[in-house]
C-alpha cells in the first residue's frame, strides 16, 4: 500500500476509465487508485479493476459529492496520508501529480490546489465563465482572507487532516468552491501551484448554460453559510 490515494469517481465510463488509470500510474507509480463507480450500469467496475485500481461500487447513483466523499471515507478508513482528486476527462495532466504530491509532502498547505491562473498557462475559457470565476474568487477571498485564483479547480491533493474532515462532511453537489471556505473555517491552509490545463477531451462540462445560474446561486449561498458557521457545526470533526 502506498501513502497516497487517487480518487476517481466514474459514472458509466468503461471506455475511458482504463486510460485514465494507466496514465496516472505511468506519471505517478507510487500511488494507489480507487475508482468509485457511482451507480454505473456498464462495465466500469471490471474495466477499472483489470487496469489495477481498487474499485468501490455504489448500488445507486449519489452524484459527484457523495461519490467523492466515499473515496475520502475509504482513504480515512485505510489511513492514507494523502488523497488526490483529478478530473477524469483529460483536463488535468497526471504529469503534474508528482509535483503536487511533493508540495503536500513538504507541508506546503493542507490542500495543494492545481491552478490554471497562478501563472499564464495555455488554458482559455469563455468570457461569461471567466466573469463567474472572478466573482467566485472575490467571494472566496472575502471569506478566507487571502486570494485563491482558481477556486473551481478540481485538481487537488489533501493531507490526512483534510481527509478526516471530508470523511465527516463533504458537499453533495458543486463541492469545489465551498470546500475552500470549509477548510479555512477549520484553520486548514490552501496552497496553490500552477498546472497546465488542457481543453476538455471528452464529455461536456457539468456546468451548462442552464445550470450556471443555479451553480452561482448555490455556491455563493454555500460560501455565505460557511461564514455564518464560524462557531462550528455538530458532527463535524475538530481539526
Amino acid at each position: 500500500m502506498n501513502d497516497a490515494l487517487v480518487i476517481i469517481p466514474a459514472l458509466n465510463e468503461e471506455r475511458s476509465v482504463a486510460d485514465v488509470i494507466r496514465s496516472i500510474f505511468s506519471s505517478a507509480p507510487n500511488v494507489d487508485i480507487v475508482v468509485i463507480s457511482d451507480g454505473s450500469t456498464d462495465n466500469t467496475a471490471n474495466v477499472a479493476r483489470n487496469a489495477g485500481a481498487q474499485v468501490i461500487e455504489l448500488p445507486v447513483n449519489l452524484g459527484i459529492g457523495g461519490a467523492m466523499q466515499t473515496g475520502y471515507r475509504y482513504a480515512f478508513d485505510k489511513r492514507y496520508h494523502f488523497a488526490v482528486q483529478i478530473d477524469a476527462d483529460g483536463q488535468h495532466d497526471p504529469a503534474d501529480l508528482p509535483r503536487l504530491l511533493d508540495e503536500a509532502r513538504q507541508h506546503h498547505g493542507d490542500m495543494v490546489l492545481g491552478s490554471r491562473y497562478v501563472q499564464k498557462t495555455a488554458y482559455r475559457s469563455s468570457r461569461s465563465r471567466r466573469a463567474g470565476m472572478i466573482l467566485l474568487a472575490t467571494l472566496v477571498r472575502m471569506a478566507v482572507g487571502y486570494p485563491i485564483h482558481d477556486t473551481t479547480s478540481g485538481y487537488r491533493v489533501v493531507n490526512d487532516r483534510v481527509i478526516r474532515l471530508f470523511s465527516e462532511y463533504y458537499p453533495i453537489d458543486y463541492p469545489e468552491v465551498e470546500v475552500l471556505v470549509l477548510l479555512h473555517r477549520h484553520k486548514l491552509t490552501i496552497h496553490e501551484i500552477p498546472v497546465e490545463m488542457k481543453e476538455r477531451q471528452a464529455g461536456v462540462s457539468s456546468i451548462t448554460m442552464f445550470k450556471s445560474g443555479y451553480y452561482m446561486l448555490k455556491v455563493s449561498l454555500a460560501i455565505l453559510l460557511e461564514i455564518l458557521r464560524k462557531s462550528g457545526v455538530k458532527g463535524e470533526a475538530r481539526s
Binding site: 474499485v55 468501490i56 461500487e57 448500488p59 445507486v60 449519489l62 457523495g66 466523499q69 453533495i172
Partner: peptide, 17 residues
Amino acid sequence: LTMRSIRLVQELGMVKA
C-alpha cells in the same frame, strides 16, 4: 434522510469492496 441514505450507500459500497 438524504444524508443518512448517502452514508448507507457509501458504507454498503465499501463493505462490498
